[in-house]
Design a protein around this nucleic acid. Structure first.
Length: 307
DNA sequence: AAATCCGACAACCGCCTTTCG
DNA sequence: GCGAAAGGCGGTTGTCGGATT
């Protein structure tokens, strides 16, 4: 006997999310955390009607018919790619692009691994950026976006110069950010170490293992600490170690925190609401709210009863 | 001003891995 | 241990808005 089905897919809504749907989903997750994505759409709608109640997941049986008409998978995607409060908005900088190219040369199309090196960026965002911008940029430079090797043996002198410039930019921009202070092999080793964790490198990458250098840890900012409290079960130190976070203080365009996902926590299935203190949550929400300009929410502040 | 093209990105689809009954 | 569902991931598609003709 297996699990219950994800959803019956009958009468489910598809396409772009409305503000109201976002509202329901966000309201629910911020107040209750994530129990199970399958249940979220149904419970979210019930919670929007009864915001003061804490939900027992088993109430799904009683309130299933009130559901947000999205499947759990869709809710998860919407949360991760758009609603998650720690998302970093704005265009990629040239330094980010160069680092992305470097990471891609080591990791290939493993977008989630690449995204883990960019706090606040999602794998979907990076994948889209790669396909729409960087692929063309590399093609223009005569570099194969898949293999990172020259497309043709003979290239114009002009293109060669530009390619060389690109590679030197990658090196310099990386060290400027303090992310990669070791030479090429050390850099790649660190990328692989960050991506594969402590479980070891793939056989082909073992040669790099000895040169791994962990990035130094830096102070975290208040918002991240508060988020940790809010989420109750986040192991911040481990998270940062695993992801090699070096600088969370940059708050230029929006703000930057450690890449976060509730699934990363050790106790994701435990109700966050039960473990957090209300004042900490409120402080965190207030902090985030003051720093973000969430698309689609700006004109609805007066309606956000949950803030 | 209308039609068409194109870039950007949100969302969906389907496969693979992990988890659970 | 097995089978099925949940979760995660990468590829692809659909849609929208701005630029161009």
């Amino acid at each position: 006997m297996g699990r219950q089905p994800c959803c019956d897919k009958v009468g489910l809504k598809r396409g772009p999310w409305t503000i109201e749907e976002d509202h329901k989903l966000m309201n629910f997750i911020l107040n209750n955390g994530i129990h199970c994505w399958r249940m979220v759409p149904k419970l979210a709608d019930f919670h929007s009607l009864h915001p003061l109640l804490r939900l027992d997941p088993h109430q799904i049986i009683l309130y299933g018919d009130l559901g947000l008409l999205r499947c759990g998978k869709s809710c998860r995607l919407r949360w991760i790619n758009y609603l998650r409060p720690d998302l970093k908005r704005g265009a990629f900088t040239e330094a980010e692009e160069n680092e992305m190219i470097q990471l891609h040369s080591c990791l290939g199309n493993r977008w989630s691994k690449i995204a883990s090196h960019f706090p606040g960026r999602t794998d979907n965002e990076i994948k889209n950026h790669w396909n729409t911008r960087i692929k063309k940029r590399l093609k223009h430079l005569g570099v194969d976006a898949l293999t990172h090797k020259p497309i043709e043996e003979k290239e114009s002198t002009e293109e060669n110069k530009e390619t060389i410039t690109l590679h030197s930019n990658i090196t310099s921009s990386s060290s400027e950010e303090g992310l990669h202070e070791s030479p090429s092999n050390g850099l790649e080793a660190k990328i692989l170490q960050d991506s594969y964790g402590n479980e070891g490198f793939p056989e082909s990458d073992e040669k790099l293992q000895n040169e791994v250098q962990l990035a130094p840890l830096d102070d975290t900012n208040d918002i991240l600490k508060n988020y940790e409290v809010f989420c109750g079960s986040l192991d911040l130190g481990t998270l940062m170690l695993n992801q090699g976070i070096t600088n969370t203080s940059s708050m230029s365009n929006s703000y930057s925190t450690s890449s976060f996902s509730i699934e990363d926590s050790n106790n994701a299935s435990i109700s966050i609401a039960e473990s957090m203190q209300e004042n900490c949550r409120q402080h965190w929400v207030d902090t985030v709210d003051s720093m973000l300009s969430w698309d689609g929410f700006n004109n609805l502040e007066q309606d956000l009863f949950f803030f």
